[in-house]
Computed example of a mutant assay.
Amino acid sequence: MSKTLRLSEKWFHRGLWLVAFLFAWFLTGLGSTIVGDLPRVEQRQSLEDFMDPQRTPALKESIKTAERAAEEAQAELEQAQLKLQTARANNRAARETFDNWLATRRVTQRAEQDEELLQRTRELDGLRQAERTAFSAVEQQQQAALDARQAQERAQAELRGLQDQARDAYVDAQRAQELRVFGYRLALTLPLLVLAGYLFKKHRKGSSWPFVWGFIFFALFAFFVELVPYLPSYGGYVRYIVGIVLTVIGGRYAIQALQRYLERQKQAEAQPAQTRQREMDYDQAQARMTKNICPGCERTVDMKDGKTDFCPHCGLCLFDHCGHCSTRKNAFARYCFSCGASAKEPVAEPAKATAGLPPQEPEGAAAA
């Protein structure tokens, strides 16, 4: 159709499409903002909302206390282990020194060293006792760390039990909330889609068609982008069922539209060719002619052979002759491309053959 439009009309047409897309873009932005704020009408719930309101905080506090106790016990254990290592090292060094001194005394057999022997022995006993004390401290800290871990594990296990008990109610509440939010989205987008369908059917060719098409684009975006992806799943049943319903509705509409179109074409082809040609839209007819398509029955016709003047399928006149210069032209053209005469002028009668006939005398001469 663009080949039959004036140059300025083409640019105006493109500008109006730009207006339609801009209008759709702004409407889409507004709709996305509104739809994005819809979940705020519902209070967000968590798993804790369905757990024991008295036992849950106590268990969480027990877990935190056990964690702190375990951390402190671990720190004390590290200190105790370091002290144990020091005590063991001191005891080992003192024993080696004592063993060397004792070996020397056996060689010398000096009795005045008996008192020193007793003193060294008491020192070793003290170091051994210090090592034992450090080892006991390590054991105590290990026990404290173990008790803290076990208390933490018991509290966590009980908390998991409460979570398991509340999970079913939480999942049901989430599904109910999703359905409510989806209902809000549906209540917002479905009327837009219905209104878009009405505008498409009644006003898509009116003077305000850019705004009509902009609203249609917005409604389609709101339905297929803002609504369909948020359909509740339930294992896919809901989405597949909705897809089947939409497909059946769309397919039924397409079948009925095809039947109505075929019936209109059948009725149109039953009318006289001159009536059909007179009632046909000029721009649409020109657009189809440029595509080698009959404007009447919309079937393909070879119009470039220079001989086909009528559609072989419906009999519609495609090419005729200018009434002024007899040039073969498009039957839907308003003016002859050769001489510029209007197509409404009557077709010129072919010149009668006068060869071989005697010249006629004027009536006055004959009377004389």
Rank of each mutant, 00 (worst) to 15 (best):
R239Q: 12
H13N: 12
T300E: 11
R239E: 10
Q165G: 09
H324W: 07
A173C: 06
A111Q: 11
L192C: 04
F26K: 15
R180K: 10
R6G: 15
R154P: 00
H313L: 08
R278I: 07
G214N: 03
P359I: 09
Q259L: 13
A365G: 08
Q360I: 07
F218D: 00
A333M: 15
T65A: 13
E42K: 05
W25Q: 05
E349R: 14
P229T: 04
L59A: 00
F217H: 09
A66M: 00
C336D: 01
T247S: 15
E48M: 11
R44P: 03
V347A: 13
G29I: 09
D305S: 13
T33E: 14
V41Q: 10
Y253M: 04
E61T: 11
A187P: 05
P312R: 05
F221K: 07
T108A: 13
V347H: 13
A331I: 03
D302Q: 06
S326Q: 12
Y261H: 14
R95H: 06
A103G: 13
P57Y: 08
Q74S: 15
D320E: 11
C314G: 04
Q265F: 03
N330G: 04
F50A: 02
R175E: 15
A196Q: 03
A145F: 03
Y170L: 06
Q142D: 10
R252N: 08
C325D: 04
G323V: 03
E42W: 01
D309A: 09
R260I: 09
Q360N: 11
R167G: 06
D52S: 10
L192V: 02
E178R: 15
N90G: 03
E349Q: 09
Y261V: 02
T86A: 12
A151M: 06
K291E: 14
M289I: 10
F12M: 11
D172P: 00
F21T: 09
P272Q: 09
Q267L: 11
V171W: 08
A273L: 04
Q81P: 02
D305W: 06
E72K: 06
V19R: 00
L199C: 06
Q150D: 10
Q81G: 13
E363V: 11
V228C: 05
A173K: 06
L227F: 14
L190W: 04
F310C: 03
V242S: 07
G315A: 08
Y184I: 03
W17Q: 01
A70T: 05
K205W: 04
A148C: 04
D283C: 03
L102H: 07
V19A: 02
Q271M: 15
